[in-house]
Design a binder for these strands. Structure first.
Length: 261
DNA sequence: CTAGATGTTAAGGT
DNA sequence: CACCTTAACATCTA
């Protein structure tokens, strides 16, 4: 589930379904997903509190409670936060259940358990503690360009660094660079003003386009790499096959003809 | 059976 | 110190 658009989609649905509901109890099925608090602490923190909304910063989610404080939720690789109407059958990978007064519940589901649930006094507190950079959709154009240009490392590595800009993951980094026609190994610092500007623009374009289609890649506009990323697929511009390399330990696809070194 | 998967972080090497 | 690569986390699927 886990890059900015996917998290935003989950946030919006939880915000809609759970705002105003009061948590009656919390059941931690698998404590392995808790970070920085025990099951007891999470439960006593939440008990009797009302959810006032769901927020997001990069890939990080926050369930804000009345009287201050929030539950922090990171979806990791396979996490999901779901609103279940009363009587829904539990799934094998349900890890934490937040039971509401009405009998419905908010469920944290995560097959691989790379995600994390914790507590924070405030959203800003947590962002500071984790040293997260500004959200990829909220950061201004000038700041985006200034931040990426400070680093003399591969541009893809910089886009993936949550401390520089928060929210871009492996798939979207590839798409942003493909849209910008920039090779993933180019030095971020070595980019021209025009190139850095293109990356900023395309970051917005790609993330917003994905949110718009609910991350259903097949519904993205023509010319996107995501629906065909990988395998032996061809570049949608008709310039031949994609190539795969490792950048920052992550599988990277690009079009060697459109994205020159 | 093996390899790899949208994320994050620690550890070890140059 | 800066940067890079690798491994680890846990589990499923191609």
């Amino acid at each position: 589930m886990p890059e900015l658009p996917e998290v935003e989609i989950v946030r919006a649905s939880i915000d809609r379904a759970c705002s105003g509901r009061t948590i009656r109890s919390v059941e931690v099925v698998d404590g392995g997903v808790l970070e920085g608090c025990t099951a007891k602490e999470l439960a006593s923190f939440c008990r009797g509190r009302k959810i006032i909304g769901a927020r997001r910063h990069g890939k990080q989610m926050f369930i804000e409670l009345d009287r201050g404080g929030c539950v922090t939720v990171h979806l990791g690789m396979t996490g999901d936060l779901i609103y279940n109407a009363k009587g829904k059958r539990p799934d094998k990978h349900d890890r934490v259940l937040f039971d509401f007064k009405e009998g419905s519940q908010m469920v944290y589901r995560d097959m691989r358990k790379f995600g994390a649930i914790g507590l924070a006094a405030s959203v800003d507190d947590f962002i500071m503690m984790k040293r997260l950079g500004p959200d990829a959709l909220e950061v201004g154009r000038q700041e985006f360009i200034a931040r990426i240009g400070k680093h003399d490392r591969a541009i893809k590595t910089i886009l993936l660094d949550q401390k520089v800009i928060a929210g871009i993951g492996n798939l979207y980094a590839d798409e942003v660079l493909f849209q910008s026609r920039i090779h993933p190994m180019r030095s971020a610092k070595g980019l021209s003003a025009k190139e850095a500007g293109a990356i900023q623009r395309n970051t917005r374009k790609v993330l917003l386009a994905s949110v718009r289609v609910s991350s259903d890649f097949d519904r993205l506009p023509k010319g996107f790499m995501l629906p065909v990323r990988g395998l032996s697929a061809s570049c949608p511009r008709g310039n031949g096959r994609f190539v795969s390399i490792k950048v920052n330990g992550r599988t990277t696809f690009f079009c060697p003809s459109c994205q020159k070194e």
